[in-house]
Amino acid sequence: MESLNIYQNSYLFVIVFLFVALMLPIVALSVGRLLRPNQPTEQKMLTYESGMEPFQDARVQFHVRYYLFALLFVIFDVETVFLYPWAVAYEKLGVFALIEMLIFIVMLFLGLVYAWKKKVLKWR
């Protein structure tokens, strides 16, 4: 029970950090709003585009290729997550776990090779 209390209380620091992280932008932006002069003109309100006149909405439909890259990222993200407990417990698990993890990685590597062969990774 003692160690559980220590565990829970140590998360109080996380709450403090969370609070600071939330308050910092709120305070900085609202104090800045109080201090700065505010005289918006139409030219000032334009989006900065390196001297170009901006046109259209920024949130347009993207090409489907972007989606593929995001999905690839998520899949390998999930793979990485499984590597963490394996790495931490490796000392107690031994060679069998190494083989398991090799099978797991090779399985996903096959997917990567497939995507590579299908020229998904190439940007045209």
Binding site: I75, A89, E100, I103
Partner: peptide
């Protein structure tokens, strides 16, 4: 984390390998 690792890699090996198949299917 260590507890989870021991559980996954000694008691739930087959589900763990199935996860890789599921991820492969999603990728393809």
């Amino acid at each position: 984390t260590e507890q989870i690792g021991i559980k996954i890699f000694s008691y739930y090996v087959i589900p763990f390998e199935l996860v890789s198949i599921v991820l492969l299917v999603a990728l393809m």
